[in-house]
Design a protein around this nucleic acid. Structure first.
Lengths: 218, 218
DNA sequence: ATTGATGCGAAACGGTGCGTAGCGTAATCT
DNA sequence: AGATTACGCTACGCACCGTTTCGCATCAAT
């Protein structure tokens, strides 16, 4: 790892064209929107963007890598990860609805296409985990931990596990069964999860530290 | 539906060879096991099975259709749907573990590969729903409804929805995040779901036949 | 201004798998 | 026997992949 910190030395030669980069992502996005993942071949993307195939391959090793970059961009735009704040329950509820909405749009279509390929492509899986799932799960877990500290949520349930309990049914329905997500479904899911996660009415906030031994049996 | 019940009229011409059928499914199964979905091309399957490509295409319109048939067979073998019985909680718990185990084997690998294609192939999606998900969900829901009638499970929660609450986190973890399933994870998931689904200790069965009551806890 | 390095577009390539067609042969029914 | 369908084989056109080659463009360093 001999990397100069902030290397002032610019790379020699002609720099890569940002326009080409944008044009490719744009064309890919349109194709995915209009005709789906199968139709968004590299050759089609090159044709529509006016960028040469070689230029595309110079930046991305293959199609999934390109789509991942696009997915992360779109996801960050339409559904930024939640942040710890005043009312954890409300934050979680909003997050669930936000993710549900995003999952029904372009981001969802991209994700579902990538998941199949991720089975055979460990690098792709890594990229999805580190770029999408891990940060989001961590952010959500932080909200939950905050709720546990302030006494709104029951302690004793690992926060990451709790996030999976909240979001699992949604993803199962949207990406595995591929059925539409209704508001009713989201409300039911959230209510059910909270039934198990929320603190009993009389619970108090956490003390200094370590003092939060509670019998986990409700 | 004008289908003659047990049509005695045999089709004219040479009948299709059951050996060829089996040989194809066998070869496909082996290839999927050894080298994954991507490597299980029609040409490879034909080569390994000793069956001509044309013969394969005469039976299945494309590769997904073939893999679906294989998946349904394997799923029925390694994890037959649950049946209503004495102890609903135990049946559900076993079912969760059984599905988890199956999802980590060949069946799971096939399913995950098919899901991506199902996005663009409505017929494939239909086949997966009618052949796999719908019957299994119905069977599980029946177990839950039985539990609700006998008072072991709380009433008022739609049974199909309840099944998704139980299995959602598992599928999310296995097929979306593609992380391994631990016994601990399954136990936690099940306990959590039951916390919300199980009847309060004092609950009574639905009407008349009241003998079956039992306080939950195990 | 020249030099050297890199990016760009265009064109062509070999490779792979798809799904189809033509052919001669095999099996079964009437 | 004749009709009909399945089988294996070979070959084909097609689409897309990922790579290579080439001439020109664009940058930094000299």
């Amino acid at each position: 790892m001999t990397v100069p910190p902030t290397p002032p030395r610019a790379a020699p030669g002609r720099p890569r064209s940002p326009e080409a980069h944008r044009a490719v992502l744009n064309a890919a996005s349109e194709l995915l929107e209009e005709r789906g993942y199968a139709a968004a071949t590299i050759e089609e993307i090159a044709a529509r963007s006016g960028v040469a195939k070689t230029t595309i391959y110079r930046r991305w090793p293959n199609r999934p890598a390109l789509v991942v970059e696009l997915l992360l961009k779109v996801a960050a735009r339409v559904a930024p990860p939640p942040r710890v704040g005043e009312d954890p329950l409300e934050i979680l509820r909003r997050e669930l609805h936000l993710v549900a909405k995003a999952s029904q749009g372009l981001a969802g279509r991209m994700l579902i296409a990538l998941l199949g390929e991720a089975e055979r492509d460990p690098q792709l899986r890594e990229a999805l985990m580190q770029g999408l799932f891990t940060p989001r799960r961590k952010a959500t877990a932080a909200v939950i931990e905050h709720g546990q500290r302030t006494g709104v949520l029951r302690r004793g349930i690992p926060a990451l596990f709790a996030t999976d309990l909240i979001f699992g049914p949604l993803f199962y329905r949207r990406f595995i069964r591929q059925e539409p997500i209704t508001k009713r479904f989201l409300d039911q899911t959230f209510d059910f999860a909270m039934q198990g996660l929320a603190a009993a009415p009389g619970a108090r906030p956490a003390r200094s530290k370590g003092r939060d031994r509670r019998p986990k049996r409700s």
